[in-house]
Design a protein around this nucleic acid. Sequence first.
DNA 1: CGGATAGTTGACTACCCTCAAGGTATGTGG
DNA 2: CCACATACCTTGAGGGTAGTCAACTATCCG
Lengths: 250, 250
Amino acid sequence: MSDTSARPNLASTRLWLSSELTAQERAVLERALSGVRTLEAGHTVVREGDRADSLHLLLDGWACRYKLASDGARQIPALLTPGDFCDLDALLFERLDYGITTLTSCTIAVLPREDVRRITAEHPGIAAALWWLMAVENSILSEWTLCLGRRSALQHLGHLLCELLVRLSAAGRVQENGYKLPLTQEQLGDVLGLTSVHVNRTLQTLRNDGLISLHQGRLTILDWPALKALSDFRPGYLHPEGMRRLSEAA
Amino acid sequence: MSDTSARPNLASTRLWLSSELTAQERAVLERALSGVRTLEAGHTVVREGDRADSLHLLLDGWACRYKLASDGARQIPALLTPGDFCDLDALLFERLDYGITTLTSCTIAVLPREDVRRITAEHPGIAAALWWLMAVENSILSEWTLCLGRRSALQHLGHLLCELLVRLSAAGRVQENGYKLPLTQEQLGDVLGLTSVHVNRTLQTLRNDGLISLHQGRLTILDWPALKALSDFRPGYLHPEGMRRLSEAA
DNA sequence: CGGATAGTTGACTACCCTCAAGGTATGTGG
DNA sequence: CCACATACCTTGAGGGTAGTCAACTATCCG
């Protein structure tokens, strides 16, 4: 890992967030960055139970929140892609009940918690944007409970691949109906609540049915309508409509 | 269902929320109530996809958020107990991607969305309280993904019963290590991602092992340490510490 | 070439689902 | 008061999805 004091322009990375803020608000947020860290894959950013004294904003790479059961089993309640805040609730809670780890090499901006609190108090538009992001996380988590509780492994995996296409496309990371998917099958299993063995077999079913291809970390959706239908994927829960109206109201 | 224009004192019901607000802030919220509805069990308050023009605050009874898969399977991503907001994200989204239904007869306060927006803009303490509630929901959902993905039916059911004890105790609804649990086994299954048949068998295991008793809708935890251990229940994710410090900072 | 990590495959197991029937409690109407 | 309906709970038999364990392969990299 390396720490730098460089302060990249947030607008240069495509954040979910940035399109919802005025240039002025973006500038305020940029000034709050206390630094940017570059971390290699597999690095633990925050451990469960750590004191929460800063927010982390993922600028590039993949990361995840994870939770551990006492027998060591791992569940990933959130996949983090470029533009996502890793730990919004650090604004409110003293301690986090989940860990954060990188899945690829990542660049992560660090924002001291007290600075962000001051900024949200002074800039209602920014507060609204952060609140909106938290509500979207909530909505995604609800959909994931439906996938975990009531859908088959095949549907669940397909649903995840659909969701990632939509989310990464908002981050400008989709070309030709495909994207880089740098997760191991074990990590996919930790998202889906499956073992890596079963993820492997389920991926093969999707491949054999001509719905996707996955070679060398690049996933392509070959039959979007069929995959959507199979997975019962309805993207409304991602709230792609944005929040422009909301931040005006605030 | 019946609508009344009565405006009960929020302090008279024990809300998670109320202890975190000043008397003044509570009064502001009470003035925002546009009415209180009394609904019988099994009444749908909000349907998936409905326009969100007001917030609902559950004053008494049990309700839930639910989501439907296209094959009709139902998943309950949130159980709502007295003092819970039913649909906090209605503040932000135009439409809800879940439904709300009552599980028992309920009294529900209705707060017009625009009024709440104005109030949160003028009263940062109230905004902070609502934001905090949403973060707790988020935390509960994350824990539920761990239960759904990585724990056995027995652990999951035990975990839910533990969680309800803690939450209901905060709402003043626990006596002698027990509480009224008015859910059918099918509804429990919709929370746990199980069929009612398997919920039945799992309940019997907990009973036979002397961990709980459940007669006529009253659940008693007979061996709290053992149930906690079995279920890997660690209550930190409910953030019982409250938010007093936070609302002062805001 | 050796070692590590990830992906693949096979045989077997088990947890939970499905389908079906029977039991119990409550309420309603004749 | 009894017959009946309804909703919920309980139990049994059988099956399927996903887990476990283990071996093998592929790829990358030093």
